[in-house]
Design a binder for these strands. Structure first.
Lengths: 230, 230
DNA sequence: CTACTATGTGAATGTGAATTCACTTTCACA
DNA sequence: TGTGAAAGTGAATTCACATTCACATAGTAG
């Protein structure tokens, strides 16, 4: 009451709202995301949201944009970082995990019903986002094949989906276990094995994969962040 | 109105309702599952549901029971079918896909927000179901190691999660693409590669993995069904 | 300083769905 | 055949939200 809510330009508010939405989704899930909670998070009154978005649908679209952008940004980053396809994949894996761990809203949106079942347009949108990502991964693999770094007889598309498979179940376990499942450790171990499939020079990464479960007490490593979230 | 709704013993109704729920989830998603729709599906009036369940929560619990049971049934089946660990895994993969393809409600429930975010007890329940399944898979792997069929230096737990990874992303793509993504083909290709990781005798399944995408027009093979659904 | 416009507010309205309850009907069994 | 418990019904209640709208106010441009 003392300080009335400041008025912010709609462009900035839209971004604020979008981030707030992703954050709320991370904490309480997409189903519990509602205009009221969103407004409270941003510090305005519910009806104010409508000054910046058409409604929940609009907000969700915006969230999807953010997710899509984040995923593709990671691809571009690893491409700049190293020329070696295998190394690119490895780093992409790490970045993906880092992204997801800092923004648990992302997997929640991806796995969400609202996306599978809701609005047909949104479903298609999400599908496109995933396909684009997979396509980029497949491109990396193809380039690795061209450089004879990766076995030529395997299908890039299949491998791209398998790459996602290194991440997804682990993330689900992570979400379900409230963070107890150590996704990073799992990913590293899985990567070792996975690498063995890909490499041209035949020798798998059979150096010391220890027999240990992936349950630890939360937390772990933390690759440097560099995402435009707050 | 002519024929009034027959009265059915609660035990049977419960089962009817549970299956109806899974079926509705398959068609419209968990979020759209509501007492009204469920009642209509079963052919009774909404309030009648409360004769058999405490409410949506009760129904959901029952659905989780059904899912858990289906998953474990598959494990037992493959164990009976063959003694070879690798073959058991391969068949489990096929059965899992078959199950999921006939009951799309299952992955929808597993991926669902309602499970991740809703009721804490339900989340834990789902987590337990998954963990149990993974544990069974890990056991198969361990037995394969004991029989020197599978490389001993790899962690059964990690591999079990990777096994899930052969399935999950494919199923998600399948759901998002309205069935266009050919999960079965993907799974077979991925299995070939995956097998190469596991086998003791070193030679990967490098026989002819064709370079083809997995998009086809719906449908495909269809392993024999033997699940207690209708 | 004035006035315009973009933002923010709070009250009001509307809707869909869960749940409850008093009442009715059917079924099984004595 | 009669009766009590189990199962089904429909109306009423409540609730949580989304959405709208008339009004208030803060930036800012002239």
């Amino acid at each position: 009451m003392n300080r009335p809510t400041p008025k912010i330009k709609t462009e900035i508010r839209r971004e604020q709202i979008t981030r707030a939405a992703l954050s709320l989704i991370a904490r309480r899930g997409l189903n519990h995301l509602n205009i009221g909670a969103l407004a409270r998070e941003v510090g305005v009154v519910p009806s104010a949201i409508y000054r910046h978005f058409q409604g929940m649908d609009g907000v969700l679209e915006s969230v999807l944009d953010l997710i899509s952008q984040s995923l593709l940004t990671n691809v571009e980053a690893v491409r700049r970082e190293t020329p070696d396809a295998l190394e690119q994949l490895h780093r992409l894996l790490q970045r993906h995990l880092q992204l997801v761990r800092h923004h648990a809203g992302i997997p929640r949106v991806i796995f969400s019903e609202q996306v599978f079942a809701g609005n047909v347009g949104r479903k298609r949108r999400m599908h496109t986002i995933l396909r684009n990502y997979l396509q980029k991964v497949a491109e990396i693999i193809r380039s690795g094949q061209d450089a004879s770094r990766i076995r030529k007889e395997i299908s890039p598309d299949t491998v791209a989906v398998m790459f996602l498979g290194l991440i997804q179940p682990a993330v689900i376990l992570w979400l379900m276990s409230n963070g107890s499942f150590d996704v990073v450790r799992h990913a590293e171990q899985a990567w070792r094995l996975f690498c063995g499939i890909l490499q041209s020079d035949g020798h798998a990464g059979d150096d010391a994969i220890l027999n240990q479960t992936n349950i630890t007490t939360k937390k772990g490593h933390d690759y440097a962040t560099e995402h435009k979230f707050n």
